[in-house]
Design a protein around this nucleic acid. Structure first.
Lengths: 108, 108
DNA sequence: TGACGGCCATCGCTTTGCGAGGCACATTGG
DNA sequence: CCAATGTGCCTCGCAAAGCGATGGCCGTCA
């Protein structure tokens, strides 16, 4: 998958995923990897900065949770502002896809 | 339109457009602007570098043509290698869209 | 003659993904 | 018992690409 295409779609992906419930970083990576059948592996160097940025803008929030074995995990949960932002982003995404489709021609 | 989403889609757009016949820079910008109803205005700072890069890799070629009024225009035309590349890019594009769609949910 | 528009192009900035690296700890198997 | 692997967090420097600004050239038309 061309890395350049991915640019800008990461927040969309993350917010969409977090709509299904809180998740922690490693889990997000694995989930994406499995759901795409390995086609797309979200990289840590892309994930964590994106997550932190979404948190800084209060679109998501985070909290640490201790597992049974004593180790900690950082969960991220979507916030109301994030839901609103996601809705706007989705609209933008659809516009974008339609636009490109108009030039490239439909699915072919 | 979020600039980040556009990344990586520019070559796809350009090659698709040039499939319809040779065009010159300014014409490309105007064509995109009109066809999208003004939603998307391809910027010069994005177009020309992209065009030159496509030419450097021999996916397109260029030639100068003199207009009736004596002024010159630089036309770009797609090359065989460009057609092949376009075909691959299209496939990648569709994969990408399907992937994101799978997380975001269909058009809704 | 001066403003506007067609037409080419470049430069520095920003953003974002990536690869690599680093740290910490639990589990498992030889 | 110790090494390898897996879980889990993170940051840093790099490269790529779009953007805004800028600049230059030359027709046309008021």
């Amino acid at each position: 998958m061309d890395r350049e295409l991915l640019k800008g779609s990461t927040p969309l992906l993350l917010l969409s995923l977090l709509c299904e419930g809180p998740m922690y970083g490693y889990q997000i990576i694995e989930t994406v990897r499995h759901r795409t059948g390995g086609t797309y592996t979200l990289k840590e160097g892309a994930l964590y900065p994106a997550l932190h940025k979404l948190e800084a803008t209060e679109f998501i929030s985070s909290y640490w949770e201790t597992q049974d074995n004593g180790r900690e995990r950082r969960y991220y949960a979507i916030q109301p502002a994030g839901l609103a932002f996601l809705s706007a982003k989705k609209k933008e995404w659809n516009q974008f896809v339609d636009m490109v489709q108009a030039f490239v021609g439909p699915k072919a």
